[in-house]
Design a protein around this nucleic acid. Sequence first.
DNA 1: CAAATATACATAAATTTCTTATGTATAATA
DNA 2: TATTATACATAAGAAATTTATGTATATTTG
Lengths: 115, 115
Amino acid sequence: MKNSQLYKGSLNTIIMKLLEENGRMYGYEITQKVKLITKGELNITEGALYPALHKLEADGHLDVEVERVDNRMRKYYKLTETGEKETVNRLAELEEFIKNMQSLVSGAPKTDLQF
Amino acid sequence: MKNSQLYKGSLNTIIMKLLEENGRMYGYEITQKVKLITKGELNITEGALYPALHKLEADGHLDVEVERVDNRMRKYYKLTETGEKETVNRLAELEEFIKNMQSLVSGAPKTDLQF
DNA sequence: CAAATATACATAAATTTCTTATGTATAATA
DNA sequence: TATTATACATAAGAAATTTATGTATATTTG
C-alpha cells in the first residue's frame, strides 16, 4: 500500500476484515473497496496485495476460486474456518492497538498502577 | 518494539509525540514511558529504538545532549524546529490513519461520491 | 480507430523497519 | 556475589512493503 508508513503491518487485518464482511472478494475488488472507504487516502499496491493474499492462502486462512468474468480472470478469496477465527483475533489486536496509540497521542499516561 | 506487527511504522510517531509532550527524554526513559502508558502492551526494543533515534537525529528532527547522571551516560533528545513541524504532520497522519482503520473495521463504507 | 485507461493477475529486486542476538558498562538489589 | 535494572550500541536476519516490470483483455477517449 502507499501512504504514511503507519499502514505497514495492517494489510492482512484489512484484507481479512473485508472478507469477513463481504463473504468473498477478488484482489482488484479489495483495492477499489479500500480506496472508496478511505476516500482515496489508502491505495493498496498490487506488489503488496497479491503476495499477501498468497501468504494468507498458504497459511490456511483463505480459500480461492478462480472464475472467468467478461473473459477476464478473477480469483475470488474467502475466509476458511481457521481464517475466521484468526480474523477475530486480529480485529481484537487492532482495537487494542488503536486504543494504545490514542493513549500515546492524547497525552493521557495516567491510570497507572498505584499502591 | 514487540507485539502485533500493527505497530510497525508507528515508532517514529510515538517518539516524536513523547518528545513534543515532555520536552526532552533519553532513550531508556522512552521505553519505560511507553510501557507505562500502554500498560505493558507495547515494549519498544533497544534494537528498534536506538537506530530510530539516530535516524531522526540524522534527518534533523532531533538534537542530542549527552549527560552523566549517577555515573551513567544519558543521551537526552529533544525536537528541533524542523522536528516540531514534522511532528504536527505525523500526528495529523496518525489521526487520519486511525479514522481510516476505524472506517475499515466498523464496516462503514458509505458516504461515497454520489451524483 | 489508435491510444490511453481500466480491469485483473503476477513476480522480482530493492528498501525499510523491526526482531533477535550480542556487547559494554555502572548501580542496585537479592 | 549473582541477578536485575539502568543505559547505551550495533550487526545479522526476517518480514512487509515499494518500485518496477510483465502479461492479457475490455473499455473509453481523442
